[in-house]
Write a protein that binds this DNA or RNA. Structure first.
Length: 297
DNA sequence: ATCCAGGTACCCA
DNA sequence: TGGGTACATGGA
């Protein structure tokens, strides 16, 4: 195992939080060490305070993968500034709970293709189900790497099977989405890479054109696959958190019974600023601990 | 057993 | 645009 001594902008960093907060589904903690696959390489990780022990990856790749080149302190400062500007108050106690619980959480630079497939898989499922589904897909269609580990399936692997075969991986009605999206990616292999050069708006439109990709999945791929930090995925948790903690959003949309997806996402961007996607992820990571009625706090 | 989950596609007024 | 519903599956 090699060692990365964290310093400067690399701090704070919390490996556990980053790998367990629902942005990736392929990492397992075994005997205190995280084991996963990046670019068809088995990677082992371990953290003790400001030291990260790693194997199977270069230091530069490690820093890039976990966005350790980004200053979290600066980003949090920007978010707090935006909150103050919007609310006129000097602090948001509710958000600070999530900020404290989520200290060191990093947005991972996930492979866009993997993010796209994983979040198509994620729809209308809980995280344990999603994890199982993706594990099955990798075992069935991924490259064996030894030690019962597999690479993430290539577009060709998913597009060259039959959609009904994909159902054996507990994908349900998502099987045809996976198949058709894989076929489209295979048809134009450069498309996903090209999205990096687009504006958020254009990138989102492109992603929305894939079968099985709606607003939520698109925003997850934008945030986790392309590092558009202004993308705000709105799931049932975020909807509950935002509408209960920030009830003035209701006042902004008085005639509707429920806020729309865009109402919530736009509010978050106004309130938290350009890093609203990161703020969203802090709230999501802390969803079970936040003082909401359903959490019995 | 029943409800719910990192939703989307499709249809209708 | 806004509101309804079907969709497969497994976890709690």
């Amino acid at each position: 195992m090699k060692t990365l001594k964290l310093s400067g902008d690399q701090l704070p960093f919390c490996l556990d939080l980053t790998l367990a907060c629902g942005q990736v589904f392929r990492w397992k903690k075994v005997d205190g060490s995280w084991i996963g696959v990046i670019h068809d390489q088995i990677v082992i990780l371990n953290q003790e305070n400001d030291k990260v022990y790693y194997d199977g990856i270069l230091e530069s790749e490690l820093i890039r993968y976990f966005s350790l080149d980004i200053s979290l302190k600066q980003m949090m400062e920007n978010i707090r500034e935006s909150i103050s500007k919007y609310s006129g108050k000097d602090s948001d106690n509710f958000f600070e709970i999530a900020a404290m619980l989520g200290e060191g959480l990093r947005i991972i630079r996930q492979d866009p293709w993997e993010a796209l497939m994983c979040f198509i898989c994620s729809q209308n499922s809980n995280i344990p189900s999603i994890t199982k589904r993706i594990t099955l897909l990798c075992e069935q269609y991924g490259t064996p790497l030894g030690n019962r580990m597999y690479g993430f399936p290539k577009p060709s692997a998913l597009a060259s099977t039959h959609p009904d075969e994909l159902r054996s991986c507990s994908t349900g009605y998502r099987a045809s989405y996976l198949f058709e999206t894989a076929a489209r990616v295979l048809e134009k292999p450069e498309t996903l890479k090209r999205i990096f050069q687009l504006s958020v708006k254009e990138a989102r439109l492109e992603l929305l054109s894939y079968p099985g990709v709606g607003p939520k999945v698109a925003d997850c791929v934008l945030l986790f696959g392309y590092q558009f930090y202004e993308a705000v995925p709105v799931d049932v948790w975020i909807r509950t958190i935002i509408t209960s903690a920030y009830p003035d959003i209701q006042i902004k949309t008085p005639r509707k019974k429920e806020c729309s997806y865009d109402d919530i996402a736009n509010f978050c961007r106004q309130y938290f600023g350009p890093n609203a996607g990161y703020a969203q992820q802090l709230l999501f990571a802390a969803r079970q601990e936040l003082p909401l009625q359903q959490n019995k706090n």
